Simulated scan of single mutants.
Amino acid sequence: MADQTPILRVALAQDVAVLQALIERSARALSVGFYTQEQIAAVTREVFGVDSQLVADGSYYAIECGGEIVACGGWGKRSTSYGGDQAKSKPERLLDPATEPAKIRAFFVDPAMARRGLGSMLMAHCASEAAAAGFTRLELVATMPGVPLYEALGFSPVEQFDLALGQGSVMVPVLLMRRGQTRGQVRRT
């Protein structure tokens, strides 16, 4: 049997098809009970996906177990808060680490590997990398299935809002959340 120790690495352009399949599998299975099937279909089709800019920036990661990618997620130094390439509608600007939070982006775990610490492993790595780039705060837009994880990792709710999908016919609630780089500790300037 192959080694099942999780290995975190930078996601590569050649991983995109595998990551897309993982994202869809994760979203469809782990959103049940939080969203309706119509909401799941809309958010999976119109929002969830790989952001190729994160891959190009080297700030999107894959976790492998036994040679298979079982989780992914990253952080952004650009203004886009959520969504894959298909969800982008405006140019991205670089964030100012001194005044703006880094964006935690697109965390997905294979349903068979859920609740094994992979999301926490990704978050620890992303927080460390964002801190190394000068960011003191983190921000994310959480889908409802992710809220319990992010709360457990020290994120606080800021604002709930709806994504209007399906040409405005499907409303999907999400939650803007923030935290200081270290749990509960925000650098004061």
Rank of each mutant, 00 (worst) to 15 (best):
G76T: 14
G76E: 12
R78P: 00
R78I: 06
S79D: 02
G83S: 09
G84Q: 07
G84E: 03
Q86M: 05
Q86G: 00
Q86E: 02
K88G: 07
S89I: 14
S89W: 13
E92D: 15
E92M: 15
L94Q: 12
L94P: 00
L95P: 12
D96Y: 07
D96M: 06
P97H: 05
A98S: 08
T99G: 06
K103C: 13
I104L: 15
R105T: 09
R105L: 07
A106E: 12
A106Y: 02
D110C: 03
D110F: 03
P111V: 06
R115V: 12
R116S: 00
R116E: 01
R116K: 13
G117L: 07
L118D: 00
L118N: 01
L118Y: 02
G119M: 07
G119Y: 07
M123G: 05
A124Y: 06
A127W: 04
A127K: 11
A127S: 15
S128E: 13
S128G: 14
E129W: 02
A130Y: 13
A132W: 02
A132G: 09
A133D: 08
T136R: 13
L140Y: 02
L140I: 06
V141R: 10
V141S: 13
A142H: 08
A142V: 10
T143E: 13
G146L: 06
L149K: 04
L153C: 12
L153Q: 14
G154H: 04
G154P: 02
P157R: 14
V158I: 07
E159H: 12
Q160W: 13
F161L: 09
F161R: 11
D162V: 04
D162T: 05
L165W: 01
L165A: 06
L165D: 06
G166L: 09
Q167L: 07
S169A: 13
S169Y: 00
M171I: 02
V172L: 05
V174R: 04
L175T: 09
L176K: 12
L176F: 01
M177V: 07
R178D: 03
R179F: 09
R179H: 03
G180E: 11
Q181R: 08
Q181N: 10
T182A: 10
T182L: 08
Q185T: 05
R187D: 04
